[in-house]
Amino acid sequence: MDQVAASVMVDQPTHTITLTVNKITYELKVLPWVTLLDAIREYIELPGTKKGCDHGQCGACTVLVNGKRINSCLTLAVMKNGADITTIEGVAEDGVLHPLQQAFIDHDAFQCGYCTPGQICSAIGLINEGKATTREEIQELMSGNLCRCGAYPNIVAAVQQVNGKL
């Protein structure tokens, strides 16, 4: 188990929690006001998950918690004690890209790349949910992830290529 020494001050209501992120279990000492997003980025030092608004309005911070996609900026790390979390860094297995990752590259489904980790985690969540079959359903169920570069049609094409084939 990796020990992550988050900054702790005396007399603060510190909580000791464990988070399993990308199959590695971390023991963290966190204060209650640390969000899951900041815990992942600043304490566990996995910066692949992005902060795009910090208010649940853009989807850049999307991670999978116990297989479900959520906005990691709107939950507290302490509330996710014991959870199994997958971030973009854990999507490829043994250096082999997940089919969605390859599809995103092949369809040029990103430009600046900043929303991409959230888009890919969201798309994995979408596929797990199994509710989207048509193009329009994919569009609707990917609408929680903003892309300011405007790569939407390519994102849909990438998700369509993989959806239902995993």
């Binding site: 649940g56 989807g59 999307t62 479900k68 996609r69 959520i70 906005n71 709107l74 939950t75 969201s122 969540g125 979408l126 949910e129 169920l141 609408s143 929680g144 992830n145």
Partner: peptide, 9 residues
């Protein structure tokens, strides 16, 4: 309402 991620939370 909201987005799939928010509805999951």
């Amino acid at each position: 309402g909201a987005s799939p991620q928010l509805r999951n939370m």
